[in-house]
Design a binder for these strands. Structure first.
Length: 230
DNA sequence: ACTACGATCTACT
DNA sequence: GTAGATCGTAGTG
């Protein structure tokens, strides 16, 4: 009954090595798009394609939890590839991957994935009915929904994301149309466009609710410069 | 000890 | 489009 899912070859499911994360966090954030978030649980394996992320830096980033090092944010200074999971708004968990080298305190927030495998399990975690056509789009669209769907909690804080049962795999990131915008829900440093997303994805946290508007773009090295209004 | 405020989501108008 | 839920974290007294 384990139907082969397209794009989930053994090669694609190989974990990203730690050195992948040991680079500037903006670079890591962009490069995480198209990769696979994998969670293997007793109930089954869930896989989602990362389509939306945000970069948070350390003492130079007022929007980051690590702007001031506290007991909570201390874990952001862990070795690259470590999970930073925190509880938000009294309701939801958010999953980050620590980036850059140990001691730097930078991380990437995973904001949305496109569900590829374990859809029924995710739907059960979310308490939604997949027969509703709109349910799939929103299944893991948003940091809280993502963790809920893939059953990621505070117990996963500090975990090593370079190996099972919870890890990020290479995927097959081909040509990617990447958009960027200011980070969602942050008031400080709102001018920094450190949110990155796959422009043609239908699984974004902000795609359905507030339409994205492509503004006249400057030329950029490898990233089309597209802002969305928030 | 007490208070203010979120890196959010859902339901309802 | 807007309000309410809901609670850990962090800053202040």
């Amino acid at each position: 009954m384990s139907r082969a899912v397209s794009g989930l070859s053994p090669a694609a499911l190989r974990p990203l090595p730690r050195r992948f994360y040991a680079r500037p966090v903006l670079r890591v954030a962009r490069d995480l798009l198209g990769r696979l978030l994998v969670h293997q649980t007793p109930k089954g394996r869930m896989v989602g394609r990362i389509v939306e992320v945000e970069a948070y830096r350390g003492r130079d980033d007022p929007a980051s939890h690590a702007y001031r090092l506290t007991p909570r944010s201390k874990i952001m200074a862990s070795p690259p590839g470590t999970a930073y999971v925190y509880f938000s708004y009294g309701n939801h968990f958010c999953l980050n991957v620590v980036a850059e080298r140990e001691g730097t305190a930078a991380a990437v927030l995973l904001r949305a994935v496109e569900p590829l495998q374990g859809l029924a399990l995710m739907a059960r975690h979310r308490g939604v009915d997949l027969r509703d056509p709109a349910a799939l789009r929103r299944l893991a669209a948003g940091p809280g929904r993502l963790t809920r769907a893939m059953n990621i909690t505070g117990a996963d804080n500090g975990r090593d994301l370079t190996r099972p049962p919870l890890y990020i795999a290479r995927g097959r990131p081909g040509r990617r149309l990447v958009g960027r915008s200011p980070r969602v829900g942050v008031r400080r440093a709102a001018d920094r466009p450190w949110r990155f997303y796959l422009r043609d994805s239908g699984y974004l946290s902000r795609a359905g609710t507030s339409p994205m508007r492509a503004l006249p773009s400057r030329r950029s090295r490898d990233v089309p410069r597209t802002w969305s209004r928030v």
